[in-house]
Amino acid sequence: MSKAFLTIEHVDKSFTRGAMTNEVLTDISLSVNQGEFISIIGHSGCGKSTLLNIVAGLTQATKGVVFLEGKVVDEPGPERAVVFQNHSLLPWLTCYENVSLAVDKVFGRTKSKAERHDWVMHKLKLVNMEHAKDRRPSEISGGMKQRIGIARALAMQPKVLLLDEPFGALDALTRTHLQDQVMQIQAELNNTVLMITHDVDEAVLLSDRIVMMTNGPSARIGEILDVDLPRPRKRLELVSDRTYIAARAAVLKFLYERHKFVEAA
């Protein structure tokens, strides 16, 4: 049907609780190309996580369809790996075991034991976490947990990587560092990425396109901004780059002028 790699077609989502119906998303359509890095930005509660979960298959859309390589998405699967907002590592497993759980499940039939071990170690190296492979999630910092979460997702060799505010809970310096790492990994592996964020700089720095969502209820895609900056991108050089400044201004304008966050009661 469509040529794009990942397409979201006229997706609506409402939650019904008893007689109450909460319209969250209305008519969301988006086409994503292979290797593209898309950020979804919007005020808190507008339905970003809901949209990501629909793409992940964890939530069913009320109306509309999601296609990945022409196939309908109707259940979760490792080809759409998710890095969850709160890392979601299993606390009884070490960092290594958290990643190898995914690797054993996804490549249990196709890779030998030694190959799977190398694969896990390679992903841990990619996020610079080999040194902590035998530690448990409770023994490492928030930024390290998020990196293990990213390693676990990458280890599934997903067609699409779904990131739900991956750096939201981190301090600014750690976040900067992880953003650089994600950029570098993406350059290396050319993943297709859908990332939720509420950080304007993060969106402009990382994305090829920024999808801006209007406020809920019944949130829709308000605007899509192309970020036409060459890669590799360097944070410091971009500070004074015209395109960067313009893109940043456009997103800020959208978020804080036209779709000002109205505090709900």
């Binding site: 390290m144 950029m183 360097k234």
Partner: peptide, 18 residues
């Protein structure tokens, strides 16, 4: 990543996590 676009702060940026 840290070598490609580093600010002077970078090592410290890494420090708290490690």
């Amino acid at each position: 990543a840290a070598t490609s676009n580093v600010t002077q702060l970078k090592p410290q940026a890494a420090a708290p996590t490690a």
